[in-house]
Amino acid sequence: MNHQDVPPKPASPPTAGLPKVPAKNPAAQNHAAGRNPAPAPPPASVTWSRPLPEPEQPPSRRVRPGTQRTLWKVLFGVVLVAVVGGLVWLAMWLNSGAGSEEARGNPGVLETSATPRATPLPLPREGVQPGEYALGDCFADFDPEALASRMVPCDTAHSAQLVAVFRYPDSEAYPGAEALKAKALEACQAAKLGPAANEYQLNFQRSFPSSTSWDSGDRRVDCYVTAPGGNVINASVLP
């Protein structure tokens, strides 16, 4: 044997090549050794807390079907009373408004019915003045600006007929030409015509007093139907 091939005897056992074993828990070691573990030291202070009780929920109120129907009926009744009351109030307000307007300065009498007839017979009559005209009178060769007219029976040839009259009260002050024109237009719009009016070509024509005739006592505004073709009407155009 070659002594150079024999390694020298180590002075201490080698440690570099040995595996490292982790140190065991002392408690586990004690348990493994059959010894009781040492008790853990008590905490410095202990705080005990009790769980708070859950807040009580108010009992839910459920509306029974019968009660719900009653509530709807009551609500419907309240709304119905409010609507009816509003309509009654509106009607009273409109009536009071119309009456107050008439009392404020628009009084007068509107005539649209020719019954009974005011103009005496016999006809025809010549030189009838405008103040003598009556609702329903018929005129031949009519001129609304003339101081006199020829009044004829309505079943004979004529060119105009008085179909509406508005009379102001005697105490009324002169309202002016524009107001009189507007009132004459209202009278024409309120005129009631009969079936015979559909057989002729007719126009509305207005007549109202001047300031001079008003001072003389003329308080009427007249509305006529006139035929542009002359004396071609042979019947009354009123109902």
Rank of each mutant, 00 (worst) to 15 (best):
P122V: 11
P153V: 13
L147R: 14
Q4C: 09
V6E: 07
P195F: 02
L18Q: 13
E126G: 09
Y133P: 00
V163N: 06
R50Q: 14
Y224P: 11
F142N: 10
L185P: 00
E186T: 05
A140S: 15
P107K: 11
Q129S: 09
R62A: 13
D218Y: 04
N198F: 00
M1T: 10
G131P: 05
Q201P: 00
N95F: 02
P65W: 10
P8Y: 07
V63L: 15
L121S: 09
S171R: 08
L18M: 10
E111Y: 12
S113I: 06
W48V: 15
P59A: 13
E145R: 10
G217N: 00
G217V: 08
D218W: 01
A98C: 00
A38C: 02
Y168H: 11
N2S: 14
P65L: 11
P195G: 01
P153H: 10
A227Y: 05
D218A: 15
M1V: 14
Q205M: 15
L52Y: 02
R206M: 07
A190H: 06
V109R: 09
A33S: 14
A23V: 14
V225M: 12
L202I: 14
C154N: 06
R167K: 12
A134F: 01
V221E: 03
Q29F: 06
Q189I: 02
L18W: 04
H31K: 12
W89G: 11
G85V: 02
A114Q: 07
W72G: 03
K9Q: 13
Y174F: 15
D218N: 11
K9Y: 08
Y200Q: 03
G131T: 01
L162F: 08
D137H: 08
H158T: 07
H3N: 10
I233P: 04
L94M: 04
V21W: 04
L110G: 05
S12H: 14
R64P: 12
N234C: 01
P39T: 11
R62G: 03
G136H: 12
V165H: 02
M1L: 12
V21F: 12
L238K: 10
R61D: 06
L110M: 14
P51Y: 01
F204G: 11
C223V: 01
P22G: 12
